[in-house]
Design a protein around this nucleic acid. Structure first.
Lengths: 280, 280
DNA sequence: GTAAAAATTGAAATAAAATTTCATTATTTG
DNA sequence: CAAATAATGAAATTTTATTTCAATTTTTAC
């Protein structure tokens, strides 16, 4: 969350040539940077000492020393939930499976938190609050997340839908207005049906919030606001599996922030809802 | 815990006079130490530069620089946990909301892990592996979890279903056999529709695995195996919201354990599935 | 197309900070 | 109580970070 690595990654777009290599090296080997001197880093990233100090200052730090200190802090947090092994082997026990799976899920939430930009979330919440109608779009396992979001936002009195059918999504999209907001959920960021709906929505002047993996994808390029989730895949854990928990966490954050915005009003809505549904 | 501050506190017993003041100052104002130079710290704690470097080395660090870096890391973690209050207040910022929500979700997984019984999980996995057919039952937000489970187990070639409609659930239940297994998902453990289906399933001699909150509920009393999830509720976080992530983690564990049981076979199934669905 | 202005860059100078050395002082031991 | 040992900090040294500034590149304005 507004961490050093996030700032570095963000800077890649506007960084000067001499500083680019430094940024890239930092993203690739942050733990090395922490124990390097400016001189060493300058050599390793074919830059100059002065460029590095300037770069650190441009990111808002006092200098390289301050930068390293903050980075050390962030890395400790990132490593916090990272201690358990990540992959399973044929002879692992149930105990291992419980630990590894739970830790992967925890780590997924944690890593994604590092990628979140307060301002983006704030903007997304503003859109959602002002929206007359919200459409949540997702295909496959992302549809379940869309449904979850729909259930939540309905509970606080928002008009919103999540269609399981692609054609219904499209039908809904062509009838959007500039007062509406869509939330497009696609981990890969390349799901064609979602991209199609986003384009239709934008032709109707609706705002688009995307939730997708941390990368340059067609979806993130199109969206007005992109909220990233981190995920590591392996043979047993598909992309969808790893990202799902982190994506749900994003939904929780958006929902909580919206609910929070009008504290008293929300409590009323929730109370009303609670009286109808006692349990599930 | 082998953090810097822990070591410093431990050192108080055996520390030399000149270093004692340094240790005490560090314990009192660790966040200040991080941004101080050896010289400054020497003055503030009425010690000498050399004494401080020696002290850092005696604690096992390379020197003062290393000591500061490690301390910075620890402090970030400590701040993180301090910020992780559990409830939100009207004047909380987006940053607070991100931290609180994410931490609640992480906590939820963590707490539930503590409640899990290896043997129960192992037995549940055995049932699932031997099942001819698996029915996942859930109402409302629990239905989304049931669907998620269904999607996962389908990917490894299991015959399974999750019905959104109560009547279809019942229809499915009356046609179960002793070779089948149902997974009943209800956080409250008192959802009448789910209880009904469980009773029908048991009259057909099917095995029942329940996933529910940690308490004596009608559901946990009926089930053959109960897997518990922990959850703390408050005005903004309904039971369903807090428990959902933990319940999904249970599904992940069951799925992973089943998938893991036949390592080679599973990889084959997943590969096949992957070729069909590229992205979601 | 070109010249002036602005921005970028890194080598070298400077400043700051950390570490080491070593002589002095205090403490322990026989 | 003297010799041995340990502790201590001032000063020297080394390492590291920051700043300066002139050379170079890029942009802008005409």
């Amino acid at each position: 969350m507004n961490g050093v690595l996030y700032k570095v990654r963000e800077s890649l777009e506007s960084v000067k040539a001499a500083e680019r290599a430094v940024a890239e090296f930092t993203l690739k080997h942050p733990e090395k940077v922490v124990s390097m001197t400016v001189k060493e880093l300058a050599q390793r990233s074919f830059s100059s000492v002065a460029a590095i100090v300037r770069y650190c200052k441009s990111l808002g730090y006092e200098g390289f020393k301050d930068f390293k200190l903050k980075l050390a802090g962030d890395l400790t947090v990132i490593n916090l939930h990272n201690r358990a092994k990540e992959t399973l082997h044929p002879d692992d026990s149930i105990k291992d499976i419980i630990a590894v799976t739970s830790n992967n899920n925890i780590q997924s939430i944690n890593d994604s938190m590092q990628l979140m930009n307060e301002n983006d979330i704030q903007d997304a919440v503003q859109y959602l609050l002002q929206a007359k109608k919200i459409d949540f779009y997702g295909i496959g396992s992302s549809y379940l997340i869309a449904s979850d979001a729909m259930q939540k936002f309905t509970r606080i009195g928002k008009i919103c839908t999540a269609y399981s059918d692609y054609h219904m999504q499209k039908v809904s999209a062509v009838n959007l207005t500039s007062n509406d907001v869509i939330v497009a959920i696609s981990y890969s960021g390349i799901t064609q049906q979602i991209i199609d709906c986003v384009k239709i929505a934008q032709s109707r002047c609706s705002k688009v919030i995307a939730i997708t993996k941390y990368a340059d994808t067609p979806l993130s390029k199109l969206a007005d606001i992109t909220i990233f989730v981190a995920a590591k895949e392996n043979a047993f854990r598909s992309a969808a599996m790893t990202s799902r928990i982190a994506t749900l966490n994003v939904i929780d954050i958006l929902y909580t922030a919206c609910a929070h915005h009008n504290y008293a009003d929300t409590l009323l809505h929730l109370k009303r809802t609670h009286q109808i549904i006692h349990n599930d």
